[in-house]
């Protein structure tokens, strides 16, 4: 029963994933690039001249076989980190990625400590 279920999950995942992958990938990249001439829109959401051109260039880069990360590095090199909505993990952005999880773990520890201490007193 359990095994069958897992098998089913697998089949569904991979048949659907491979077909959709390419257009999803593209859209994901567009959504992660900021339109520099707009107010807070992504390349995907914007229909400005600039956004249209960036879409073409990203298409070309994908055709050339560039990976997602390489495309982001390319854009960041030309336009600065500003253009990427999901900051890359590096020394400068370390705290941005680290702090939320630190809060999550820290909060959990505080609750654990609170409950445990109370139990000891009984």
């Amino acid at each position: 029963m359990k095994n069958n279920l897992f098998f089913l999950i697998f089949v569904i995942f991979f048949t659907s994933l491979s077909a959709q992958e390419k257009s999803m990938e593209k859209n994901k990249i567009f959504k992660n690039l900021r339109c520099l001439v707009c107010q807070g829109q992504s390349i995907s959401d914007s229909n400005s001249d600039f956004a249209q051109t960036v879409k073409l260039v990203v298409n070309d880069l994908i055709e050339e076989g560039k990976t997602e990360e390489e495309i982001y590095s390319f854009m960041a090199e030309k336009y600065g980190d500003w253009i990427i909505y999901k900051p890359q993990l590096n020394r400068q952005n370390f705290m941005l990625w680290f702090l939320p999880y630190a809060f999550l773990i820290g909060g959990g520890l505080i609750i654990f400590y609170l409950i445990r201490k109370k139990r000891e007193k009984t």
Partner: peptide
């Protein structure tokens, strides 16, 4: 003509 090359120079307007 397409504006694509200009992206390589980091041009946006």
């Amino acid at each position: 003509e397409s504006g694509k090359k200009s992206i390589n120079f980091g041009i946006y307007g």
